[in-house]
């Protein structure tokens, strides 16, 4: 309980700045941190179809095999990171459960499961201007026709490695290293003035 009380997200200090932005743009653009998202990194052999089936049964949906796509069910999502690597995410506090499910699925197969929840924080960018804003900072094509719902990408936000996920037409999710979160937030807020 004590750990809960002192827990502090990487962008806790940006809450007011993000909120002011929402107000200033009349809701056309909103940025907020989604703190403490559970994140578990999974590596497993995608060619082992029995294993893929076991993992799908364990988490309740199939892992994405198509590069840079996302599959999900209810509040759990799986992001493709590499041919044999995924990021399985869920709400705060679910990392233990996700880890257990994946471990059941992996069983004795070769692979790895690591709780990386503290590795990154999550920033939600929402609104009609979300893509324009992010396009100022990343070198990938964020056009809605290309980067549509269910797609994700690992790329650079200026110099910081990030994962970007498209939830829906006007909602983009940014996963950024905790230690680079303020760097990313400063860039986003600065890009707004351009």
């Amino acid at each position: 309980m004590i750990a809960e009380a002192v827990r502090r997200s990487p962008l806790a200090d940006y809450t007011d700045r993000f909120a002011a932005l929402s107000t200033a743009t009349d809701g056309a653009l909103s940025i907020r941190e989604l703190p403490f998202v559970s994140q578990v990194d999974l590596r497993a052999d995608p060619k082992d179809s029995d294993l893929m089936q076991r993992l799908a049964t364990a988490i309740g949906f199939a892992l994405p095999i198509v590069p840079n796509t996302v599959t999900s069910r209810e509040d759990r999502r799986a992001l493709w990171l590499a041919p044999d690597e995924w990021l399985v995410v869920g709400p705060d506090g679910q990392q233990g459960a996700i880890e257990r499910e994946l471990r059941n699925g992996l069983n004795s197969a070769f692979g790895s499961i690591v709780d990386v929840s503290a590795n990154r924080t999550v920033i939600e960018i929402r609104g009609g201007k979300a893509r324009d804003l992010l396009a100022h900072c990343v070198p990938i094509d964020l056009d809605a026709r290309v980067f549509s719902a269910g797609r994700c990408a690992q790329t650079l936000l200026v110099k910081a490695h990030v994962i970007i996920e498209c939830r829906d037409e006007s909602g983009l999710i940014l996963y950024v290293r905790a230690s680079l979160a303020t760097y990313a937030a400063d860039w986003l807020l600065d890009a707004l003035t351009e």
Partner: peptide, 11 residues
């Protein structure tokens, strides 16, 4: 081969 065309700064 996995992600398609990307800017050289990613490599």
């Amino acid at each position: 081969p996995w992600c398609g065309d990307r800017e050289d700064i990613e490599f």
